[in-house]
Simulated assay, not measured.
Amino acid sequence: MSPTIHLAQQPEADALLSRSPLAALVGMLLDQQVPMEWAFSGPYTIASRMGRDDLDAGEIAAYDPDAFAELLKEKPAVHRYPGSMAKRVQTLCQYLVDTYDGEPTAIWRDVPDGAELLARLKALPGFGEQKARIFLALLGKQFDVRPAGWREAAGAYGEEGSYRSAADITGPESLAKVRAHKQEMKRAARAKQSP
């Protein structure tokens, strides 16, 4: 059974995220320097512009790079930096093809524990430590992917009842709580920097 995801805050885009692990990975990849809803609606926009109702890692990896960049640049753009993000999406998809036969669920299927899952996520192109931990928490909290030690591997993002990241968003109310937490973190960071 697929989860009901509310990260894009758009029914069609959220439906794709709910049924497509690749869409969720691509949304997470795009989630930087743009509002979260914009990032997570990106996979739906890409699929629509490709004339598909889902994403396929092999098809994206094999797509002409210039044409794929144009798909992301078309108005409204998929990201603030559509050209560089097009390259990142294709690089991620090529990695999935080369490493997991294009099947994103192979990343977490039969994984022995949370530490190994975190290592596999960190190995994904475009996924650093923080993005990998957030996605691990998203898998555990909303996709029911819960190998032993997943919360510990996700760090603070895995805490039950927290509102730190995309992993905790289940609707408009939790989105507001996550936004408030992020604003508080920014204020605290600014306060540390000022003399």
Rank of each mutant, 00 (worst) to 15 (best):
R109C: 10
V89S: 05
A67Q: 12
I46R: 00
Q90A: 07
D56F: 13
G140N: 03
A15F: 00
E103V: 11
M50K: 08
T91Q: 14
R120W: 02
V97C: 11
L16N: 02
T105W: 10
S84E: 07
L16W: 01
D53F: 08
E37K: 13
H79P: 11
M28Q: 11
Y63F: 14
A47T: 07
A69R: 10
E37I: 06
G140E: 01
L138R: 13
G51S: 03
W150H: 02
H6G: 07
Y95C: 12
V34E: 00
S18D: 02
D54P: 14
R88P: 05
D53W: 06
E37N: 12
P65C: 02
W38Y: 14
I107P: 09
A23G: 09
D66Y: 09
A67L: 12
M85F: 14
P147M: 02
L25F: 12
R80C: 05
A57H: 05
R133G: 09
K141N: 07
L139T: 07
M28I: 06
I134F: 00
S18A: 08
A47N: 07
R19Y: 02
R109L: 11
Q142T: 09
F127G: 09
L29A: 07
D144C: 10
K131R: 12
L25C: 11
V34Y: 01
Q9Y: 03
G51Q: 05
E12M: 04
A47Y: 00
A123N: 13
Y44H: 15
S84H: 08
H79T: 06
Q94V: 09
Y95E: 11
Y44T: 11
F127T: 06
A86N: 06
A15L: 04
R88W: 06
A24P: 05
P35Y: 00
K87S: 14
R80H: 07
Q32Y: 15
R19A: 06
P11C: 00
L92E: 03
Y100W: 08
L136D: 02
R49C: 06
A15W: 00
E59C: 12
I107G: 04
I134R: 07
A106P: 03
K131N: 09
K122V: 07
Y95D: 13
E70P: 09
L136Y: 02
E116W: 04
L124G: 11
L121P: 10
S48M: 05
L55P: 11
R80E: 02
E12G: 10
M28C: 13
A123Y: 03
G126V: 06
D54E: 15
Q33C: 11
G42N: 06
I46K: 02
L138N: 08
V78N: 03
Q142G: 08
